[in-house]
Design a protein around this nucleic acid. Structure first.
Lengths: 225, 225
DNA sequence: GTGAACAACATTGTTTACAATAATGCACAC
DNA sequence: GTGTGCATTATTGTAAACAATGTTGTTCAC
């Protein structure tokens, strides 16, 4: 274990490799590295104060997760997701999250209803206040809460990985000022449908919402890239 | 590069790590390792005649893919998928493969129609001949062909990974002698629906088929494990 | 001035040795 | 006889040196 690195990190018992993996993943998802940007092992060693083994393990992990692209003897770089793939990801999310929404409507209890309604209120307030950051956070919370309530493991795992890949499009889409005007009612309908314990309606609400995300993404990025 | 290992492998330009990953994955999916069986690095080094680095990289990759389970300082073992998770996987497959079936119905061309119909004939013949192995292979071919025709990348990738995790249940389910009696018509309906270029019907056929797989899996493994 | 061969550099892939950790078995006290 | 503590062993985690590969810049011939 490197002595200097001790206590540098939030997660306690994590090994060096796990620590680097987690922080590099976070950095990529947060957009701190541009797509196609090279990830030179030496730089990462310095940046995270870790050994090469740890850095290489992290790159291998993130390559399987689809965040990093590796070419033999030519190194690693941040994978660039093109528009077509981003749209496919939204389609897959629609299929899986609508499934989870239906399950959530079947299983939701009082606590879940309270948490969902609370998120809905936060969203309303964020839109009123024009606070895009708060709205974006509540958006993540809502999708996560629905999947938590569903009790499923497989679908949420897949969705989580896919969402990470799509971060570039999500960030820039959320920039649009009037986007909440469309998405707020959709989100509230998801909340209401799940709280009403109506699986069909919940699945349809989720599908409709992600269909709207699909169209917004497609139109906004149509020519740019 | 180890000298003795040269030419031992099918894939030409693969590095040691890639070679070990691919062969270990294949071994696990083929059922050559029992679930929960320990994968000691030293043993794998000898088994595949590779360095520890290569073996460790392979274990890391397969851990992310969900085939291997790693515990810090306690090594790796083959991950055991329980029945609940196996059923979730079938549900997710239903959602994604029905999506792909619809896309396939929209995009299929003459060549695709020919290949699908050919697979259908192979299935019929296999059932007539009571050749379970041939039927299982045609089953894989059909699902793969539909996803190929769909032109999608994301959903098929996810499905492929999930199918690998479920191999234990698939293998044992296929053992049932009268299983093709149920599944053959379902498969043929998928073929016909896609060839008829009817997306709705294709999605519904795929959904119905995987629902049948779901029930068969649930009932067959209900008490056993 | 342009192209090709070559040499120097940067970067990754591989191997070996070393350190740390958890599991195991044994001895000893009670 | 049972349980606790310690020593041993098996196994993984980490680090550093070495080899191979790809890239870039330079020189020389034409």
């Amino acid at each position: 274990m490197t002595q200097e690195a001790v206590g540098r990190d939030t997660s306690r018992g994590a090994s060096d490799a796990e620590r680097v993996t987690s922080r590099l993943r976070q950095a990529i998802v947060a957009g701190e590295f541009a797509p196609k940007q090279r990830l030179v092992e030496t730089d990462l060693i310095e940046m995270f104060d870790a050994s090469r083994g740890a850095v290489r393990a992290a790159l291998a992990t993130l390559a399987v997760e689809g965040l990093v692209e590796r070419v033999r003897n030519r190194g690693a770089r941040v994978r660039a997701v093109d528009l077509d793939e981003a749209l496919e990801i939204v389609e897959v999310r629609a299929a899986l999250e609508s499934l989870c929404a239906a399950r959530a409507a079947e299983r939701v209890d009082e606590g879940g209803v309270a948490r969902l309604r609370a998120i809905g209120e936060v969203m309303r307030a964020a839109v009123d206040a024009g606070d895009g950051e708060a709205y974006a956070q509540a958006n993540r919370d809502l999708h996560q809460e629905v999947m938590d309530i569903s009790g499923a493991k497989v679908a949420p795992d897949v969705v989580k990985r896919l969402r990470a890949q799509n971060v570039r499009y999500r960030i820039r889409l959320a920039m649009q000022p009037h986007r909440p005007t469309t998405s707020l009612p959709e989100h509230l309908e998801i909340v209401e449908a799940v709280c009403a314990k109506d699986p069909e309606r919940a699945a349809e609400a989720m599908r409709a919402h992600l269909n709207s995300v699909y169209e917004a993404t497609r139109d906004y990025f149509a020519k740019k890239g």
